[in-house]
Design a protein around this nucleic acid. Structure first.
Length: 640
RNA sequence: GCCAGCGUAGCUCAGCCGGUAGAGCAGCUGAUUUGUAAUCAGCGGGUCGGGGGUUCGAAUCCCUUCGCUGGCUCCA
C-alpha cells in the first residue's frame, strides 16, 4: 500500500502517492493560468519535485515576479545545452540568473564570435520549440560524477566534488544534464523569447589566478513584448549614458593626450561642479563641520606610517625630489590626522568634524576604468570625524542624516544601503568593533532606511555603511561610505586628554557622502538624462531674438537676469527661430525666451520650457521672482 | 591586470576580398531678417590613435604600444 501525501492548494486538498512529481496536480487544478512552480513557505518547488510530505502549496505563474528569475535560470541551462550541442568539447562552468537576465560560463580555446552567438541563439529557439520536459533527478554523488566524467565535463565534476552531499540534484532536458539545485520551469517551451547580449571573460570561481572562462550574457521574458521593451530600455539607456551626454553637452572631456582615467571638466560641467561644491559646503557648515585643505603629495614616510605602502595597491609610484621620496596621495586621511596631531587635544573640543574636497590619485587597473564612474584622479567629498565613545552614535546619525539630505536634494530617493561588519582579519579591539557596529546599526535604524547586513564584509580597519545609487542601466555605484577606522588611530597614536586627565583614544570616522565628485556627476548626468534642474543648469535661460532688430531688447533682458544672478545667454546667430529653438532644446537649456516685435513693444517675453513647450507671453517682472524662487528652493521641476 | 571587441575630419559613421580617403552634422564665408525642434549656396578640414613589419603598393594583413568599450577581479 503506497503512502498518500496530502497537498493543499488554495481551499482544495489533493492526494498524491509519495514520490509522484507535483506536476500530477496540474491537470486537477482549476486555475486560469497553469502554475509553473509552487511556493511552499519560503521555498520554490518545481513541478518535477516529488511529493515528499504533507504541504500547503501556492501556485506560481508567469505573472509572479519570482517566475522571471526561474525563467532566467532555466534559460541559462538552455544556453548551455545549445552551446554543448554546437561546440562539442566545450566545458560548462556555472550559469545563474542575474538581476536582469542570465549568463553561463564556458571553457573553450577559441573565442565565441558574434556569429556564434547568433547560431547559439537560434539553436536555443529550436530546443525551446521542441518543448523538452525539464526533469529533476536526485542522484548518488558517485553516479553524478560518473555522468559528467563520461561527458568530459571536468568543471562540473570539480563542482560536485566540492559542493555535493551524498545525494546531488541534477536537471535534465533532452540529452543535456546539469548539476543544479533548481528550481526550474516545467519545459524548454517557456523559453521562447530569449536574446543573447554579450560575451566576456570571467575567472573560474572568481579567482583571477585560475583559468579564464568565456561568459555569455543573455536575457529572456515570457512574452515578445516584454523582451522588446527591455531591449528598448537598453537602447534608451545608451542615449543617456553619461559619457555620451557629457560629450554632447560639453560637460567634460577625456583625451589620449592626458592619459587613461584623467578628466577635464569643461566650462558647462565646471559650473555644475561649482554649484554642487557650494551647496555641499553650505550644508556642511550648517552641520558643524570645519574645512581643511591639504597638499596633493606628501613624504613617502607618511604613507609608510599609515600602512598604505604595505596594504594599498592602487598607489602611483613615488617620485624623488632632492633625495627625498614623495607620494601622490590616494587618500586624504593622513593629512587630517597630521592636522589633528598638530597639538594636544582635549575632550572638550571633540567632536571635530573636518571636511575637505580632497583630490586623490589612484592607479586603478586599466581594465576597470569607466567614464566618470571609475577614474584615476578624482575629488572625494571627504571628512573625518574625531569623537569620544559617548558621541559616536550621534555622530554617525548626523552623518547619515546629512547624506540623505544631500542625496534627496538631487532627487535620489532609491538607494541600496549596506552595513558591513567585522571580517575574520581585523585590527582594533573586539569591544570597539562591537560599539562601532552598534552605533552604525542604531544610526541606520533611526534613519528609517531599509538596509541589509553584509556579514563579515567590513574592511580590516573598521565596519562601514555603504550607500549605492543606480546608473542608467541599473548598475549600482557606491557613493556614500561611512567607515570607522581603528587602524589609523592606532598607527598614529591619536589621543585626547579626558576629563580624568588621562589620555584616551578617539574614535575616527571616515566618510564621503557623494563619494567623489566625478562619480557623483556621472550618475547625476544619467539620473537627469542631461536635463539639469534650474539651479544646476549651466545656462538657465537662452534668449532667442526673432530678428536682429530684437537683439538690443534681448540684451536688455539678459542684463536684468544676470543682475539678478541668473545664467542667461543670447542666441545671436542669423538663423530662423525654429532652428534656434531646436538648438536650445538639444542643448537641454531649461528656459527659452523668444522675443520679437510683440514682446519688444509689450516689455515681455514668450517663455518656452524644455520638455514642456510654449507657455506664451509673460511680463519679466512676474517671471523673475518665480525663477529666483525655483532656484533658491533647488526645485527639481519648473512650474511657472 | 585578464578575456573579447573597437580606434577613419570637432561629432556620428561609410570605406567588401590590399590599388593611395568619403557622407551627414558641426565650423567658416556669403545670401536670407525669419514667430516655437533643421533656409539656401559655397569653402576649409584627416601623417585613417602612435611605432614597426609584410608588400611594387597598407585605413585595409601581421607585430607592438597607447586609448576606448563589455565583462571578470578590485574600488569612491
Amino acid at each position: 500500500m503506497e503512502e498518500l501525501i496530502k497537498i493543499k492548494v488554495g481551499k482544495s486538498i489533493f492526494s498524491l502517492p509519495k514520490g509522484t512529481p507535483l506536476s500530477e496536480l496540474r491537470p486537477q487544478l482549476r486555475l486560469e493560468e497553469k502554475p509553473l512552480l509552487f511556493r511552499s513557505g519560503q521555498e520554490l518547488l518545481d513541478l518535477s519535485y516529488p511529493a515528499d510530505h504533507d504541504r500547503e502549496l501556492e501556485p506560481v505563474t508567469a505573472s509572479d515576479p519570482e517566475a522571471l528569475e526561474i525563467l532566467w535560470h532555466s534559460a541559462s541551462h538552455l544556453l548551455a545545452q545549445a552551446v554543448l550541442e554546437l561546440f562539442p568539447g566545450v566545458q560548462a562552468g556555472v550559469g545563474p540568473a542575474t538581476e536582469t537576465g542570465f549568463y553561463y560560463d564556458f571553457l573553450r580555446d577559441q573565442a565565441f564570435t558574434p556569429e556564434d552567438l547568433v547560431a547559439i541563439e537560434s539553436r536555443m529557439r529550436e530546443i525551446a520549440a521542441q518543448d523538452l520536459p525539464i526533469r529533476r533527478r536526485v542522484l548518488k554523488k558517485e553516479e553524478a560524477i560518473k555522468i559528467f566524467e563520461d561527458r568530459g565535463q571536468k568543471l562540473k565534476v570539480e563542482l560536485i566534488q566540492e559542493k555535493g552531499g551524498a545525494e546531488v540534484t541534477c536537471y535534465e532536458q533532452g540529452d543535456f544534464i546539469d548539476f543544479c539545485l533548481g528550481p526550474h520551469l516545467p519545459s524548454t517551451g517557456y523559453i521562447k523569447y530569449v536574446k543573447l547580449l554579450s560575451v566576456s571573460g570571467a575567472y573560474w570561481k572568481g579567482d583571477e589566478r585560475g583559468p579564464q572562462l568565456q561568459r555569455i550574457y543573455g536575457t529572456a521574458f515570457f512574452s515578445q513584448k516584454e523582451l522588446d521593451d527591455y531591449l528598448n530600455f537598453l537602447e534608451e539607456a545608451r542615449k543617456r549614458d553619461h559619457r555620451r551626454l557629457g560629450q554632447e553637452l560639453g560637460l567634460f572631456h577625456t583625451s589620449d593626450d592626458l592619459g587613461a582615467g584623467l578628466v577635464i571638466w569643461q566650462p558647462k560641467g565646471a559650473i555644475i561642479r561649482y554649484l554642487i561644491e557650494n551647496f555641499w559646503k553650505e550644508e556642511h557648515l550648517k552641520d558643524g563641520y570645519d574645512f581643511i585643505y591639504s597638499p596633493h603629495i606628501a613624504k613617502l614616510d607618511l604613507w609608510k606610517k599609515s600602512g598604505h605602502t604595505e596594504f594599498y595597491e592602487a598607489m602611483y609610484p613615488p617620485l624623488e625630489l632632492e633625495g627625498c621620496q614623495y607620494q601622490l596621495k590616494p587618500m586624504n586621511c593622513p593629512f587630517h590626522i597630521i592636522a589633528y596631531k598638530s597639538r594636544q587635544r582635549s575632550y572638550r573640543e571633540l567632536p571635530l568634524r573636518w571636511a575637505e574636497l580632497g583630490t586623490v590619485y589612484r592607479y586603478e587597473r586599466s581594465g576597470v576604468l569607466h567614464g566618470l564612474l571609475r577614474v584615476r584622479g578624482f575629488t572625494q567629498d571627504d571628512a573625518h570625524i574625531f569623537c569620544r565613545e559617548d558621541q559616536l552614535e550621534d555622530e554617525i546619525k548626523g552623518v547619515i542624516r546629512l547624506a540623505i539630505r544631500l542625496l534627496r536634494a538631487f532627487g535620489f530617493e532609491n538607494y541600496q544601503v549596506y552595513l558591513a561588519t567585522r571580517p575574520e582579519k581585523y585590527v582594533g579591539s573586539l569591544a570597539d568593533w562591537d560599539k562601532a557596529e552598534k552605533a552604525l546599526e542604531e544610526a541606520l535604524k533611526s534613519s528609517g532606511l531599509s538596509y541589509q547586513i553584509d556579514q563579515g564584509e567590513g574592511v580590516f580597519y573598521g565596519p562601514k555603511i555603504d550607500i549605492k545609487i543606480k546608473d542608467a542601466i541599473g548598475r549600482l555605484w557606491q557613493c556614500t561610505t561611512v567607515q570607522l577606522d581603528f587602524n589609523l588611530s592606532e598607527r598614529f597614536d591619536l589621543t585626547y586628554v579626558g576629563e580624568d586627565g588621562n589620555f584616551h583614544r578617539p574614535f575616527m570616522v571616515h566618510r564621503a557622502l557623494l563619494g567623489s565628485l566625478e562619480r557623483f556627476f556621472g550618475v547625476l548626468i544619467e539620473h537627469y538624462m542631461g536635463n539639469f534642474p534650474l539651479w544646476l543648469a549651466p545656462v538657465q535661460m537662452i534668449i532667442l531674438p526673432i530678428a536682429d532688430r530684437h537683439e538690443a531688447y534681448a540684451r536688455e533682458i539678459q542684463s536684468r537676469l544676470v543682475a539678478e544672478g541668473l545664467r542667461a545667454k543670447i542666441d545671436e546667430s542669423r538663423e530662423k527661430i525654429g532652428k534656434k529653438i531646436r538648438q536650445a532644446e538639444m542643448e537641454k537649456i531649461p528656459l527659452m525666451a523668444i522675443v520679437g516685435d510683440k514682446e519688444m513693444n509689450g516689455g515681455s517675453l514668450s517663455l518656452r520650457i524644455h520638455g514642456q513647450g510654449d507657455l506664451g507671453e509673460m511680463k519679466i517682472d512676474t517671471l523673475l521672482p518665480r525663477l529666483k524662487q525655483l532656484i533658491q528652493e533647488k526645485s527639481l521641476e519648473i512650474k511657472i
